[in-house]
Amino acid sequence: MKTPLTVLVCALTLMACADHAARARLGIEDSTLLRSGMGASQDEAAGAVNPQWINAYAPVANSGAALASLQARLDRLPAEQNGYFRAKAQCWVDAAKDARQAGDHWGFVEEAIGQAAVIATGLESGVSPSAANPALRTVSVVRPDLWKIVNTIKSDPAITSCREAQLPLACAEVQLMQAGHDAWLRSFAHAEKRLSDVQDNLRKSAESALQCKPAAAAPQLTTPQAVTLRADSLFRFDGGNDAAMLPAGRRALDAVARRLTTVTALREIRITGYTDRLGENAHNQGLSLQRAQTVARYLRARGVTSPIAVRGLASANPVAECRQSRRDELVQCLAPNRRVEIELVAAS
């Protein structure tokens, strides 16, 4: 007959195996999430509260009152703002309410309130909020494959004009973040339970995007009203001048130039360069502007005569959200953000 201690050891061994299996299914890369008790990390890297976190979330002294106030602010927003950001703010409020009702005192309630408040403030002031999901202290990355699907849907041009696709996408992102909080708490079973709703919302978003009809182009235009070119195809990595342009980039711009020279009634061409979020902001700002200017000169040299306006927005308006810990994987994931957008403005 096994002694009680032996039975306990066996039970703990089986539990550890189950935890490892759940962790593997969630795709968690942070090994500290399976450590507890003696030897477990308690430092800032493991999620310990730091002064910055306290300064950011200390104002949320009464989460119940804060949630009620946020809900009232969202309810007052005009109907035309009932899109992606309004839905995302509401989903953050709902996530905060859910965690608060469950008695979660680890900081996720405050962080969810903070995310909703930032979006609500942007909508109220007329400033477009960021679509990125920032790293939160109480959230770990789960299911990187689902985050790739999020980024794929998010980068589809149809999403920008398809409200039916935006709403489930916004909530899928928040739900995936909340599953990451469950994992941060080492509650892997709860994290897995949320994934069915995440997958359902992603499916709804993708199907709605396919069903949405693209906006009709102005009859004068014989080419798309916007063209997005990946910077990694146009230039060598971290390059933006003529010397850094790749053969594939020249071919792509040659094709764009041929189409633009046939377009009539074109008032202006707006060229915007973007970088990813890695590196110094000043460097990224200069690089993004340089890429836009290089593309403009190239089109001019190939017969494009319409007025051209250029600008560089560095890492603003990201289309891909990445949380990988390995730099090579992060650089690859951020590739869609390194881009040059060419917008065609028809004459009125």
Rank of each mutant, 00 (worst) to 15 (best):
N201A: 08
R270D: 14
A56N: 05
G122M: 02
S63C: 15
D232P: 08
V49D: 13
D200F: 06
E44S: 09
V118C: 06
I54H: 13
Q101V: 05
P318V: 11
R203S: 07
A292M: 12
A68E: 15
R267D: 01
W106G: 07
P224C: 02
H181K: 07
R291A: 01
A309L: 14
Y84S: 01
R338P: 10
P157H: 07
A135L: 13
G303S: 06
A179Q: 00
P336M: 13
L260S: 02
R35G: 10
A102M: 12
L221D: 10
R267G: 01
L253N: 00
R302C: 13
R23T: 14
R297S: 01
S233K: 08
G103M: 08
H105N: 14
N284T: 03
S140A: 15
N151T: 11
T264S: 14
E44F: 11
E111D: 06
A209S: 03
A40I: 02
H105D: 15
G312E: 03
T272R: 13
Q178G: 03
K204T: 07
G303W: 06
V9E: 06
V263W: 06
T138D: 14
Q115D: 02
R297T: 00
P134K: 09
A58L: 14
L195T: 01
K204D: 06
Y298P: 03
D232E: 09
I113E: 03
A296Q: 03
G273K: 04
Q115F: 01
A165Q: 00
S41V: 04
D276F: 05
S41A: 15
V227R: 02
L167R: 08
V109P: 06
A226W: 07
L234G: 02
Q175W: 05
D98H: 09
R277A: 12
N317Y: 08
G239S: 14
G303M: 04
L234H: 00
Q52V: 09
G286H: 06
F235Q: 00
A209D: 04
R291C: 04
L5K: 09
A257D: 09
A292N: 10
Q42E: 15
A257F: 09
A316I: 04
T152R: 12
V227I: 13
Q293T: 12
P51A: 05
D145V: 10
Q211W: 09
F235G: 00
G39Y: 08
R291N: 07
L26T: 06
K193H: 07
A11E: 07
S161C: 06
A215F: 07
V49L: 15
D242A: 15
A120M: 07
E173D: 14
C171M: 03
V118I: 13
D98Q: 10
R302D: 14
L253T: 01
D238N: 14
Q42L: 15
M15A: 08
P59M: 14
Q285H: 06
Q101L: 07
R258Q: 05
Q166D: 02
L67C: 11
G47M: 00
A292I: 09
V49G: 04
A46Q: 13
A61C: 10
C162H: 02
E207N: 09
N133R: 11
K88P: 01
L202C: 08
